[in-house]
Simulated assay, not measured.
Amino acid sequence: MRKKSKKILVLCTGNSCRSQLAEGYLRHFAGDDAEIYSAGIETHGVNRKAIQVMAEDHIDISGNTSNHVDEYSGIDFDAVITVCDNASEACPFFAGKVDRFHRNFPDPAKLTGTPEEVMDEFRRVRELIKAYSADFISQYINK
């Protein structure tokens, strides 16, 4: 008998960068063992540089959309991961037994500098989120 796949929500402020990166990697590492969603307390659109750095790692998030957390009010999530302090503080209540996780990642979209410096920061944050996502799936889903 196939086990029920877990439903996981990644929550960020604007659902434009960090939560999009995490959604892409969690989906990649979980395969069919989890349903991954991402949302924001606000919606800012998917950041083009986030799409670009994920494509560099052969993960396509170009079809992702920026969604507001209220759009998922009818889904019974097993876990909610907040990837920034603002989202953690503003995270709405989810009914039922929902495991909550928090890891504050730097926001690469806030960095100013040369185009190369900005892309280097996107890549650095991508690697942090990739490692966290792999660990999360191995400990929470594949345990």
Rank of each mutant, 00 (worst) to 15 (best):
Ala90Asp: 09
Tyr25Leu: 00
Glu35Val: 08
Asp60Glu: 09
Thr43His: 02
Phe77Leu: 14
Thr114Glu: 10
Asp60Val: 01
Asp78Arg: 08
Tyr140Val: 10
Ala79Gln: 09
Pro108Phe: 12
Gln52Lys: 14
Ala95Gln: 14
Glu127Gln: 15
Lys49Ser: 12
Lys110Tyr: 08
Tyr72Met: 13
Leu9Ile: 07
Glu127Val: 00
Gly74Ile: 01
Cys91Leu: 02
Glu23Asn: 08
Lys143Val: 00
Asp120Ile: 00
Asp70Val: 13
Glu89Asp: 14
Asp85Ile: 02
Glu121Gln: 12
Ser66Phe: 01
Glu42Thr: 08
Asp85Thr: 07
Asp99Glu: 15
Thr43Tyr: 00
Lys4Pro: 02
Lys49Met: 12
Ala55Met: 08
Ala109Leu: 09
Asp78Val: 10
Gly63Thr: 14
Arg48Gln: 13
Asn64Gly: 02
Asn67Met: 06
Glu42His: 10
Phe122Val: 03
Ala39Trp: 03
Met1Ala: 13
His58Phe: 13
Asp70Gln: 11
Pro92Arg: 13
Val53Trp: 07
Cys17Thr: 10
Leu11Val: 04
Ser73Pro: 01
Asp60His: 08
Leu11Asn: 01
Asp85Cys: 08
Val98Thr: 14
Val69Ser: 09
Ala34Cys: 03
Gly31Ser: 04
Arg103Pro: 00
Ala50Ser: 15
Tyr37Gly: 02
Ile137Phe: 01
Gln20Ala: 06
Tyr132Gly: 09
Cys84Leu: 06
Asp32Thr: 09
Ala30Gln: 07
Asp32Asn: 14
Ala90Lys: 12
His102Val: 10
Ser73Cys: 11
Val53Leu: 06
Ser38Thr: 08
Thr65Ile: 12
Arg126Leu: 04
Tyr140Met: 04
Asp60Ser: 05
Lys110Asp: 13
Ser133Met: 09
Ala30Tyr: 03
Arg124Gln: 10
Glu117Asp: 15
Ala30Gly: 05
Arg100Asn: 06
Arg27Ser: 10
Gly63Arg: 15
Gln52Phe: 08
Glu56Asp: 15
Ile59Thr: 02
Cys17Ala: 14
Ile41Pro: 06
Ala39Leu: 06
Ala134Thr: 00
Glu71Ser: 15
Lys4Glu: 10
Asn47Phe: 08
Asp78Asn: 14
Val46Met: 05
Glu56His: 03
Phe77Met: 13
Ile141Ser: 00
Phe77Glu: 14
Phe136Leu: 10
Pro115Val: 12
Ser88Leu: 06
Ile8Thr: 03
Tyr132Pro: 07
His58Gln: 13
Ser16Asp: 03
Ser138Gly: 00
Lys49Gln: 14
Arg2Thr: 10
Lys6Phe: 02
Glu71Tyr: 13
His68Gly: 11
Gly40Ser: 06
Asp107Val: 11
Tyr72Glu: 14
